[in-house]
Nucleic acid binder design. Structure first.
Lengths: 138, 138
DNA sequence: CTTGAGTCTGTAGTCGCTACAGACGGTAGG
DNA sequence: CCTACCGTCTGTAGCGACTACAGACTCAAG
């Protein structure tokens, strides 16, 4: 494929680490603009690469696609945009922290249960006991 | 509804904190057995309550529905089951820890970006800068 | 001329719910 | 006895963010 006018989707995939199907998916939902074409084949330029890289990094930080959409608008906008971006990130950060807290609670219970299983408690399985807690065995 | 033969789905929902639609969903996918009926209405007994409570607790610990299925089989099985349950839980624990690590990485980057936004850096938004990193502005 | 890699469109599946629509059942008040 | 209302029923479609095909095509190298 002609490299002077852009790169093919496979090359874009390699460069961004983003699955081909996912790239097409992003296009379909309007997160990426419909790219140029050479015949039936998509042809991506530097701007496309940058935009997809941006999306990927935002996704790696856990932003939802809707949030990414908003961030893309902000990134294109001029002044006063930082405060909005900050708020978006701060809200997302709170969300991430809440999820960490949830997972840490799970981790604690699981680790304790596994530990007790390893200790070989006398009757029954401590893990299953934990899950059955508060239930009188019928 | 006749309380001597069991409780209605709404009551089960209240007791277990599990959404009515979710209970029916669990039944549909075979996680819960088809309950008794009084006419068209489902009627749940003590065993049903216990089983759903078990499922709920396992879900709260982050087990997938397939894992919950396996745990239910183990909980019903007799001896030697604890080792299997332990392994399942240990694998899941590793998964939980991996997710925590991912989230902590996100948290770090996000917190730093928000902090730099708050600090009011001179040109452009640090958060958007982070997301655009490695991209030469076209 | 054939072969193989790459790309295309379109559709359906994943997971774990959640949210209806539209019908039916049982009960309490007027 | 009629009506209003709540609870329940079945069935289907939607969410988010992909992922996985099937089946057709394009193009370049050997």
């Amino acid at each position: 494929m002609d490299r002077r006018n852009g790169i093919a989707i496979g090359e874009l995939s390699r460069r961004t680490g983003c699955n081909i199907e996912t790239i097409r998916y992003y296009e379909r939902i309007g997160l990426l603009p419909a790219p140029a074409r050479r015949g039936r084949y998509r042809l991506f330029g530097a701007e496309d690469v940058a935009r997809l890289a941006f999306v990927r990094r935002a996704r790696e930080l856990g932003f939802t696609l809707d949030e990414v959409r908003a961030l893309l608008v902000l990134a294109a906008g001029g002044e006063g945009v930082c405060a909005e971006a900050r708020d978006l990130a701060a809200a997302h950060l709170a969300d991430v922290r809440a999820r960490i807290a949830d997972l840490r609670a799970m981790e604690g219970v699981l680790a304790e249960a596994v530990r007790r299983c390893d200790a070989g408690e006398a009757p029954g399985c401590p893990l299953i006991g934990t899950l059955s807690a508060g239930t009188s065995p019928a």
